[in-house]
Design a protein around this nucleic acid. Structure first.
Length: 426
RNA sequence: GUGGCCAUGGUGAAGCGGUUAACACUUACGACUGUGACUCGUACAUACGAGGGUUCGAUCCCCUCUGGCCACCCCA
């Protein structure tokens, strides 16, 4: 089947990928590690729809963000409602939190989720139109300890994934009280050095001035060297909160660095924001990111409840983890010769599978050689050959594939299982 | 949405305006008719992304389209 030739076959759409058998083990490792770590912190899984009313995302993410303006998969359903494929996870989780009044159950709700997100962007390394996020949301408290707990969790999760390279960077974006002041100061500063800025940044100056601090153009980095820093403009509450977070991080030896130029793309972020950044993924440096969203729940029609969360990009983590192999090899391969042996072999195989062993056989009646060749290819730990002799004597040779050592054992599932799992062979 | 690079079999890849599209791997079968790995043999692209053009002739030249990769914007 050739791609791009509709007459020959249909291919997946741009930016939508298949996860093939030889890579799914890696994803399962990521997901299992996340579940394991999350449960230690008391986060429970929530599963929300992949499609929501468009309005939910407009109101949460922000009408003027790139995500809402040009990246959403939006369509009308048959009833004329405007729906969209979720571009991120927090909005839907918060919607469910409000809709089911989870705030009435506990003062702090800790949720986690994993699943596909959709953004109509041009695909590139580490960026796809359907991508997957694993995230958590802790809703109900402004206490800096909650921030620190989420950050500790993130840091721990990456450790357990075996990734030490991505480094944790944190910042505080302030709140609706102090951010406007800072923004004004920044705009003021930028208008003084307009000529030194790139075209994009001159545009950003009006649309999203904080973004200028994040520009990669050397001229802009130089020009904004003396720009006002958000930390100098935090109101007393935000300042106390941010130093509180750092105090907890220090107390628990969570490694991090301050990045006062870090900006987040979604409108709902307040105060603590953070990213796990890496230099190994080309332009996609953020492997995980998140922050506090103290006004979001109320903004979406819920009670005035603060929250904080983060999400990691599964594809990006998978890229960092690389070619690590997670293949599952069979414990035993059953080769057979002759029709009656096929039945016996099937009986043995089934019995061992019932006992919890991974057992393979060749589905087709092939030569013994090709059956064993398959055993080798599958990297089976042991193999047996069942023929007339074995059936007559009720004994079979159990062969350890790694070194060819053999032992005669009785042709019964229980005995074979004991030999294989016990590892007591020879 | 914008830009750069690219497009040969299941995979990695050579190749030249003109009838064998190299090599390697993978896969299948066999040499070993009751024992895998090593070795050896055989088989596997009417076909070089699609469409059009130039030419006596194009996989190799030109155009369009489609697709891929990477980057910008933005983001996990």
């Amino acid at each position: 089947m050739k791609r791009g030739n509709l007459q020959v076959g249909i291919s997946a759409i741009k930016g939508f990928n298949d996860l093939l058998p030889f890579e799914s083990g890696l994803w399962q490792f990521i997901e299992q590690t996340a579940r394991k770590v999350f449960s230690r912190y008391g986060f429970q899984e929530i599963r929300v729809p992949v499609v929501e009313k468009t309005e939910l995302f407009c109101r949460s993410i922000g009408d003027t963000t790139d995500i809402v303006e040009k990246e959403m998969y939006t369509f009308a359903d048959k009833g004329g409602n405007s729906l969209t494929l979720r571009p991120e996870g927090t909005a839907g989780v918060v919607r469910a939190f409000i809709e089911h009044k989870l705030y009435a159950l506990d003062s702090l709700t800790k949720l986690c989720y994993m699943g596909p997100m959709f953004r109509h962007e041009r695909p590139q390394k580490g960026r796809y139109r359907q991508f997957h996020q694993i995230g958590v949301e802790a809703i109900g408290s402004t206490d800096p300890m909650v921030d620190a707990q989420v950050l500790h969790l993130v840091s721990r999760l990456f450790q357990e994934l075996g990734l030490t390279e991505p480094s944790l960077q944190i910042n505080s974006l302030g709140c609706p009280v102090c951010r406007p002041t800072y923004r004004r100061a920044l705009v003021n500063f930028l208008s003084g050095c307009q000529d030194a800025l790139c075209a994009d940044c001159r545009r950003r100056q009006a649309t999203n001035p904080l973004r200028v601090l994040d520009c990669k153009v050397p001229g802009c980095i130089l020009a904004t060297q003396g720009a006002p820093t958000i930390s100098d403009y935090l109101c007393p509450d935000c300042d106390t909160h941010f130093s509180g977070v750092q105090g907890y991080l220090n107390a628990a030896d969570v490694p991090y660095s301050l990045n006062s130029r870090m900006v987040r793309g979604l409108d709902y972020y307040t105060r603590t924001t953070f990213e796990l950044v890496t230099g190994l993924l080309g332009a996609q440096s953020a492997v995980a990111a998140g922050g506090r969203y103290d006004g979001l729940v109320e903004q979406l029609g819920g009670p005035s409840v603060p929250g904080i969360g983060f999400a990691l990009g599964v594809e990006r983590v998978a890229l960092l983890l690389g070619d690590r192999s997670f293949e599952q090899v069979p414990d035993l391969f059953v080769a057979v010769m002759g029709d009656s042996a096929r039945k016996t072999g099937f009986r043995i195989m089934s019995g061992l599978q019932d006992a919890g062993l991974r057992v393979e056989a060749d589905a087709e009646a092939k030569s013994l050689k090709s059956q064993l060749r398959r055993a080798d290819k599958l990297k089976a730990r042991y193999s047996i050959v069942i023929g007339e002799t074995e059936i007559e004597t009720n004994k079979v040779t159990l062969k350890r594939m790694a070194d060819g050592e053999q032992e005669l054992v009785s042709l019964e599932a229980v005995e074979l299982a004991a030999k294989i799992t016990g590892g007591s062979m020879l």
